[in-house]
Every structure is written in structure tokens, then in C-alpha cells.
């Protein structure tokens, strides 16, 4: 699926893009390919959907998004798709997943809500709950971030 050269390039672009006039050339020199090949690989990874985005990640707390809640909903089995798409349509929802419930843990739809304050999060969650007509949910507010990092792929190959 991925060539050896693509994996070498991924190992570079999963780190930080160099801050120089020709950052892709610098990566190319490290990997031992041409700048053109690096650019083509990045484009190709985006086109194939292996890479969701090539850009910047900000620390959300540092740009004012101080509050985040993981909201877990109990969606009726037959409504998961409809509800999931509706929840995902809210701008404040950054992640939305269906997960299997476990014994004693009946929740099957998970959404991350980011806002500036906890009160704003509560308001958005109230609106979502109203929109999907589901009252059975838990709000898990984050009180501390212990780790936030990017995955390192293919480092053991």
C-alpha cells in the first residue's frame, strides 16, 4: 500500500515542517529524494485520504478554547447514523464517533465539544440534545490535559 520511499517521507512530515524558504527541499535532502518527489508524495497522500490535512495544529487552550467536554450519548440502535450525522454537523463538535457499548456503559455515540468557556459548552450540548431529541447522555469535562501529541508512524519498521 505504501512504498518504502513514501514511508520515509511520512516519517519526516509527521514531524515539524522546517521553517526555511524551501522546507520540502530540506526534507528531500534528509530522505534522499528530489523535492519534486516529496511534493508529489504529499499531494498523493492527501488525494488518497491517507493524510487528512497538511497544515498547522494549534494548542486550543492557547487560542481561547479553554473548555472541552467529551459527551457520550445513548442513541437508539436504529438511529445511530442519523444522530451521528446530526451531532457531527455542529461546528463546535471537533470529533464524533460511534463506539460499541460495554456492560454497565450503555453509551454508543461520542462527541468532543470545544468552546471558550464551560457555560458555552453546556449551551451547545443543550442545543445538540434538543436537536437529536436524546436526553440520555453524560458530559465529561476535561480538568487537565496530561498528554497531547501526534502519532509517530512507521518508527519501528
Amino acid at each position: 500500500m505504501l512504498t518504502a520511499s513514501e514511508k520515509r517521507i511520512i516519517r519526516e512530515i509527521q514531524n515539524d515542517l522546517p521553517l526555511c524558504e524551501r522546507p520540502f527541499l530540506e526534507i528531500a535532502e534528509r530522505v534522499g529524494v528530489t523535492e519534486e518527489e516529496v511534493l508529489q508524495t504529499v499531494d498523493s497522500l492527501l488525494e488518497r485520504g491517507l493524510m487528512r490535512r497538511f497544515g498547522a495544529a494549534v494548542r486550543h487552550q492557547r487560542v481561547g478554547y479553554k473548555a472541552n467536554a467529551l459527551v457520550v450519548w445513548r442513541a437508539p440502535e436504529g438511529r445511530v447514523e442519523e444522530v451521528g450525522l446530526r451531532v457531527a454537523s455542529f461546528r463546535e463538535v471537533t470529533h464524533c464517533y460511534q463506539r460499541e457499548p460495554l456492560p454497565g456503559w450503555p453509551y454508543n455515540l461520542y462527541a468532543m465539544v470545544h468552546k471558550h468557556t464551560q457555560a458555552e459548552c453546556l449551551e451547545v450540548i443543550r442545543q445538540i440534545s434538543k436537536a437529536i431529541e436524546i436526553d440520555d447522555y453524560l458530559m465529561l469535562f476535561s480538568t487537565r490535559e496530561l498528554k497531547r501529541a501526534s502519532m509517530l508512524y512507521f518508527i519501528e519498521d
Binding site: D16, L17, R48, M51, F54, A57, R59, S150
Partner: peptide, 28 residues
């Protein structure tokens, strides 16, 4: 642009610039 990005990184606002992958499509 380079100078501004550099200071946004140094002040911790930018965590990283690079590729963000679809872990499932990567086979993970």
C-alpha cells in the same frame, strides 16, 4: 511569514506544522 510562524511556535500557540494522518487508512 516565517518569522511570525516561528514566534507562534515559540509561544506555544502552534503545536506542530505537518501531516495529520487518517490512522485507519494507514492500517493502524
Amino acid at each position: 511569514v516565517i518569522a511570525r510562524i516561528k514566534s507562534l511556535k515559540e509561544s506555544g500557540i502552534i503545536r506542530r506544522i505537518g501531516g495529520f494522518f487518517d490512522s485507519r487508512k494507514m492500517g493502524y
